[in-house]
Design a protein around this nucleic acid. Structure first.
Lengths: 100, 100
DNA sequence: GGTTTACTTAAGCATATGCTTAACCAACAA
DNA sequence: TTGTTGGTTAAGCATATGCTTAAGTAAACC
């Protein structure tokens, strides 16, 4: 998941998709790479669970899967919480008599 | 930055560091890899801005740099916001007369 | 039926990544 | 001063990643 977001082109696609669904070629248009390259990126994003795609006729439409995005946010949130707990304990310690 | 968080060992180190500072060998202990490998991971984390390290005597102490962590959180937050704006517009559209 | 359009599959390739081992150095400790 | 500890540097290597081109397939269009 972080792996999937590690690539700039893939983040660019996610940015585009966060403004609404898009087809493969729509996603490819602003990029300078070949279409197969775009599809490979989309596969990485799909395997990571960050997007979902659906083929109707001959066009494949992609949308963001927010559940996965939240997982990443959650991970960082937990790091922050455990950091804050630490600061709290430190504060309590410093507030105790004789620890100044 | 996402790149730096993409590796499980590096996330493990960040998890450890979110509970407080640690030396290189303290970080290495729970891992199965060699010490140079650990140092290489730390360099990636430091270059990404996610951690800061400081050498005193012969021990290097590492701590998390929260500003960088927030940058990643912010990015995801903005994606979510632009998604919510979209849903709002969609809601408004559906609420208009004749769009049902 | 023939052609364009929208992908898909497969193969190959250059560079990046995540390790390893083998030396090395510098701060303590005995 | 000799060893030990904590880390560093360098080189090499296997696999992963991010592309490419070339050749499909299959739905729409004329």
């Amino acid at each position: 998941m972080f792996q999937a977001l590690a690539d700039p082109s893939r983040r660019f696609m996610v940015e585009r998709l966060s403004r609404g669904p898009a087809s493969v070629s729509e996603l490819a248009k602003p990029l300078t790479m070949s279409l197969p390259a775009v599809v490979q990126h989309l596969q990485v994003l799909e395997n990571s669970g960050l997007i979902r795609t659906e083929k109707v006729g001959r066009v494949r439409t992609c949308h963001i899967e927010w559940a996965a995005m939240q997982t990443a946010e959650q991970w960082m949130d937990e790091r922050r919480k455990s950091w804050e707990r630490r600061l709290d304990r430190l504060g309590e310690f410093l507030a105790e008599d004789g620890n100044q």
